[in-house]
Nucleic acid binder design. Structure first.
Lengths: 106, 106
DNA sequence: TTGACAGGCAGGTAAATGCCTGCATATATG
DNA sequence: CATATATGCAGGCATTTACCTGCCTGTCAA
């Protein structure tokens, strides 16, 4: 997985909204997704392209339509490799901070 | 919490690296952090500024030094509000995809 | 076959981003 | 006090990003 592409894809609120819409209803067409996005179809296409490059969605065509499906795996991997790491040290880190503040706040 | 600031802050590999360095050793000064970043001090300052605005780090001064501490809370909240949501629907989503592929792959 | 519909592709532009240089300020130390 | 050290602040510049317009291709249905 390319961490960087995933993080960059998630950096834009419109792309997060697209994931949200797909979470509401998976397998939507480009046209359907466009109705909830305040921008031109071509722009939505670009956003979906970035999501697909980040492997956050997968697509396939049905006739003249293009269906979009969420792939939750990269999101979970971001959590596993990135967020959980800091979560584990959470108490320790807060302890360090507290100690430092006390040492200097006296 | 401002989701957008957190996601945008995490979008840059240098900022993620800074968080990593702080995870290795919490409470480092700007100067210390600079030694592991291949850019000028002023650039590092800007990155740290974004991390602080996203509430991912907190700082306080000790004399002429500025110490930086990780705040793991926003990371956990991103997970709780964002990633867990998709994780929950994971099996269902994969099931939808499989079904769709089979319907059209025949 | 022809018209309507769904989507792809190719620039163009304004704004945001990331990095830099140069200079200013504040603190520690001899 | 004088100097070195740690950081702050301002502005410039190149790249990337996000959105747009305009046009082309492919599919369905009458």
């Amino acid at each position: 997985m390319d961490d960087d592409k995933v993080f960059k894809a998630l950096a834009d609120p419109n792309r997060r909204q697209l994931l949200d819409r797909l979470c509401d209803q998976n397998g939507q067409t480009l046209g359907q997704l466009c109705t909830s996005m305040d921008m031109k179809r071509q722009s939505v296409t670009q956003h979906l392209g970035l999501l697909e490059q980040a492997n956050l969605i997968s697509t396939h065509r049905r006739g003249r339509e293009k269906l979009h499906f969420i792939n939750p795996v990269p999101l979970y991997e971001v959590y596993a490799r990135w967020i959980r790491k800091f979560e584990e040290g959470r108490l320790g880190l807060l302890h360090d901070l507290k100690q430092e503040l006390e040492r200097n706040g006296k």
